[in-house]
Amino acid sequence: MTTIEQTRNPSLLGNVVLLQRLEGLAALGLGVAAYVWLGQSWLVFALLFFVPDLFMLGYLRSPRIGAISYNLVHTYTAPALVALSGLMLGPIAYGIAAIWTAHIGADRMLGYGLKFETGFEHTHMGRIGKARRKS
């Protein structure tokens, strides 16, 4: 059974989604804790927190482009690379990575997973929105 078939039947996902939501909560907490420790501006945090969601605009072009652009900025790889660049760029990179990690964590905690090319509402954590209500 493929992952997309599993998302059609939420019961097949079972406790996996709960674990991913708890992971999201942990990432959100760690991102915020790191930001507190860095002592950077909360105004900057508020301004940058939703920037990754701008990549949903790819859906205006097509579901495929939307899924690719959304997924590129909603994996922990990118903020990890930004944090690593902090070794050369300094604390601002750590702050951006902390905000980005917190954002991804919040999304996962709320059940917004990585997107399939079949549409925004089909995620690796199951269906969301109208698609969830239909199933």
Rank of each mutant, 00 (worst) to 15 (best):
L43M: 09
M109A: 13
R108I: 00
G126P: 00
I104N: 01
A27W: 08
D107V: 12
L30N: 06
R108Y: 03
V73S: 04
L89P: 06
W100D: 01
K115S: 09
L47A: 12
L87M: 13
H103C: 07
H103W: 08
R61I: 15
M88I: 15
L38M: 07
S41L: 04
G126E: 00
A83R: 04
I68V: 12
R64N: 09
L28W: 07
F45I: 02
L30V: 15
R64K: 15
S85E: 10
L89H: 14
L57K: 11
Y112P: 08
G119W: 05
G66I: 00
Y35W: 12
H122R: 09
D53V: 10
I65C: 08
M56R: 13
A93L: 02
G39Y: 00
V51Q: 08
I128H: 00
G58H: 01
L84D: 12
T75Q: 15
A106W: 12
E117H: 13
L57V: 12
H103L: 15
L47K: 05
F45N: 09
A93H: 02
F55Y: 11
K134W: 14
F116V: 07
A80S: 14
V44H: 06
A27D: 02
L28Q: 01
T77V: 15
Y70E: 09
H74Y: 05
R61Q: 11
K130R: 15
T101Q: 06
L72H: 06
G105L: 05
S62F: 05
G113W: 00
V73M: 09
G66H: 00
I68L: 10
F45G: 00
T118A: 11
A33Y: 08
A131M: 09
A93M: 10
Y76K: 09
H122T: 06
G95K: 05
Y112D: 04
R132F: 13
L81C: 11
D53Y: 06
G129W: 07
L114Y: 13
M109S: 09
G95V: 02
H124M: 13
G86T: 09
D107K: 11
P63W: 01
G129N: 07
N71H: 02
Y76L: 11
H124W: 10
A131Q: 03
V44I: 15
K134V: 12
R61T: 12
R127G: 03
L57S: 11
F116D: 05
T77R: 10
L72V: 14
Y112E: 04
P91Y: 14
G90L: 07
I92Q: 15
P79T: 07
G90D: 12
P52R: 05
Y35T: 01
G119Q: 03
A98V: 05
L43Y: 08
F45T: 01
V73F: 08
G58T: 02
L38D: 00
T118H: 14
V36D: 11
M125A: 05
L43D: 09
A98P: 01
V82C: 07
I104Y: 02
P52Y: 11
S69H: 06
L57W: 11
H122V: 10
G129D: 10
A27P: 01
V73T: 14
L30R: 02
L84P: 10
L38G: 01
F116N: 03
G66V: 00
N71P: 04
E117L: 12
F55I: 06
L89N: 11
L47G: 02
H103A: 04
S62Q: 08
L48D: 09
L84K: 10
T77D: 10
A27R: 07
W37E: 14
T75M: 09
T118M: 08
A83S: 12
A27S: 11
F50V: 08
G119P: 06
